[in-house]
């Protein structure tokens, strides 16, 4: 350090201004202005949640008052027909439609996503992995409207061509929605699970190899159980994404609220109902219009519960290797 001898700590005159870069009035002001400002930014995220709960809660209460039905009638009613006389607002058909789509798409996405996660973390050579991971991420970046369009353009016609003379396939059907939504959430399962599986320490694998296990045994009996909590959490997140999916199911599964087991017939999900009411001519403030908030509340509650449970699984059932 080339320190001149004059600058002792008790020098009587202040040092020349240019030697100290950090203090103008503007800059001292920044010190006081910035923390509250960015605190407000953080507060906006909290306000968003408060806003969602407040808006949905308020309008749901209004719905029950205007429609004159009770909570039990809403949650337990098996018919949904706002145009009927008297109008019927049972959410069960929508819950059923949502369940069918979520279940069917997870039948496709969970196994495929998990297997690709295992492949990427255990088997893939570096070069292949460097190509496949971005490709899967691109798949995740495709907007849902494209998947919906694909269901109309490709999946339903193929289903018709394969099954049609024997089994009737409706133009809007649950199966094509399950297929496109399933494909849509594969990258979610695979990338989240892969992160968890890659994080399993090498030592565990090497110990298993040392005991004579094959690669298959290491992958399925050592690595997978070690990362199980993360894999389950990714499953839940993917299912919750399927539950909240709108455009693909609206285009593929249609807007017919009915409880049917046949996946080749049309169903309506909660999300599709919300959009459908909005697009319809229901007057603002009418019971039919307000019903979209009640359905939105149910949707929000279901997805929130799944996300919270997945967070708890991730936090409390994680294996610690320290």
């Amino acid at each position: 350090m080339t320190q001149s001898p004059q600058t002792t700590p008790i020098s009587p005159e202040p040092p020349p201004r240019r030697s100290w870069a950090g203090r103008s009035r503007l800059q001292s002001a920044q010190e006081f202005v910035v923390p509250p400002l960015i605190f407000v930014c953080a507060l906006i995220t909290v306000l968003t949640t408060v806003g969602i709960v407040f808006v949905l809660g308020l309008e749901t209460v209004r719905f029950f008052r205007v429609a004159g039905i009770g909570l039990f009638e809403f949650l337990g009613g098996a018919t949904l027909n706002p145009k009927a006389d008297p109008p019927r607002y049972g959410i069960l058909p929508l819950l059923w439609g949502t369940f069918v789509i979520a279940f069917g798409s997870s039948l496709i996405a969970l196994p495929i996503g998990l297997l690709s996660a295992i492949f990427l973390s255990e088997y893939a050579p570096r070069g292949l992995r460097a190509v496949l991971k971005p490709a899967l991420e691109l798949l995740a970046g495709i907007p849902t409207i494209v998947y919906g369009y694909l269901a109309l353009l490709l999946v339903t016609p193929v289903l018709k061509a394969v099954l049609e003379p024997a089994i009737r396939v409706e133009f809007y059907n649950a199966l094509s929605a399950c297929i496109v939504v399933g494909v849509m959430i594969i990258p979610m399962v695979s990338s989240l699970s892969e992160d968890v599986l890659s994080a399993v320490p090498r030592g565990l694998r090497e110990a298993a190899y040392g005991l004579g296990a094959t690669k298959f045994e290491v992958a399925t009996r050592v690595v997978l159980p070690a990362g199980l909590s993360g894999v389950l959490a990714s499953f839940l997140l993917a299912i919750s994404r399927a539950v909240g999916e709108t455009m693909a199911v609206l285009l593929a599964a249609g807007v017919k609220p009915q409880i049917v087991l046949n996946p080749l017939r049309s169903v309506e999900t909660m999300t599709a109902y919300i959009v459908n009411v909005m697009k319809g001519e229901a007057a603002v403030g009418s019971a039919e219009h307000l019903s979209l908030y009640a359905v939105g509340m149910a949707l929000f509650a279901i997805t929130l519960a799944m996300n919270i449970v997945s967070g708890i699984i991730l936090k409390h059932f994680r294996e610690e290797y320290e």
């Binding site: 969602i52 909240g244 999300t271 959009v275 939105g296 949707l299 929000f300 997805t303 799944m306």
Partner: peptide, 10 residues
């Protein structure tokens, strides 16, 4: 994790 349609309602 909130579905996008819920943001639409908000």
């Amino acid at each position: 994790g909130v579905p996008s349609i819920v943001y639409g309602i908000l």
